[in-house]
Design a protein around this nucleic acid. Structure first.
Length: 257
DNA sequence: AATTAATCCAACCGCAATACG
DNA sequence: ACGTATTGCGGTTGGATTAAT
């Protein structure tokens, strides 16, 4: 046997909250707390709302220390950096911002910041592609093609382990710094600035679970030591770069993975 | 001034994970 | 151990407001 049903959906009020309802909910929680049970709370507080609705209203609006209004530049940076690293995990992103809710951050991202971020990323991407492609072309000859790519793509474990077979890594940080492979047919040097790799205590609890944030290149890359979230395969990106730019020597490249 | 389009944001919905009986 | 209630999260919706025509 399980618990009693959450609420009678037909009899609960929906839609915007009135100031009276806000006052009732706020007053009740300030005096009694949530009691660890949102489902029974509305009845006790004298509200005809679903517990889920009460919880949302409290967390997103009535809770103390909620910050409303414009986001600062530093908040923008945090959101952009974390979004590019971990994606739309709004509750985690919001937890890194004082007084912001996941709903708030999500709305802000979807309505404003996404556009800003996309246009910024696009211009970085264009610059990055120009430099990368230029270096490909400058270093290529018909008989002995070579690639020299410098920090213009995100980095994956799959490609690196295949490319760098024989090399062992002692820390995630080392995976960002790839020695060159000069014995293969196509020389590939992956050079990513070590200074752009920073330690990051993801959950802020001062334990050993230290993660690394890579801030270089066109795509910010986040890795987690424990469950290994990795980004795009750099070779795919190189292939795409070459295939989408119809230049003279592109067809001379062979890619080993 | 009226109409339409764009933007904003609170609230809802559904799903997955977790807790409970 | 299992089934169901509850919670938490992210995606989506819809109404209010503002801007553009």
């Amino acid at each position: 046997m399980g618990r009693a049903p959450c609420c009678d959906k037909a009899s609960v009020k929906k839609g915007p909250w009135s100031p009276e309802e806000d006052a009732k909910l706020k007053d009740y929680i300030e005096k009694n707390g949530t009691g660890g049970n949102w489902i029974s709370l509305p009845k006790k507080a004298g509200l005809t709302r679903c517990g889920k609705s009460c919880r949302l209203r409290w967390l997103n609006y009535l809770r103390p220390n909620i910050k409303h209004g414009d986001f600062s530049d530093s908040e923008d940076n945090i959101i952009c950096t974390l979004f590019s690293s971990i994606g739309s995990r709004w509750s985690i992103i919001a937890s890194k911002l004082q007084g912001r809710t996941d709903n708030d951050v999500k709305n802000y991202w979807n309505t404003k910041l996404k556009k800003k971020y996309m246009s910024m990323n696009q211009s970085l991407e264009m610059k990055s592609q120009q430099v990368t492609l230029l270096s490909i072309l400058q270093n290529s000859t018909t008989s002995s093609p070579s690639l020299s790519i410098t920090g213009s793509f995100s980095y994956s474990s799959a490609a690196s382990s295949s490319l760098l077979s024989g090399n062992s890594f002692t820390s995630p940080q080392e995976r960002f710094i790839s020695p060159s492979q000069s014995n293969s047919k196509n020389q590939i040097n992956l050079v990513i600035d070590q200074e752009l790799v920073e330690k990051y205590d993801y959950d802020d609890d001062d334990d050993d679970d230290v993660d690394y944030l890579y801030n270089g290149g066109s795509v910010n890359q986040w890795t987690e030591k424990e469950n290994g979230l990795w980004g795009e395969n750099p070779f795919d990106e190189i292939k795409e770069l070459v295939s989408t730019n119809n230049t003279r020597s592109c067809n001379n490249f062979l890619f080993d993975e």
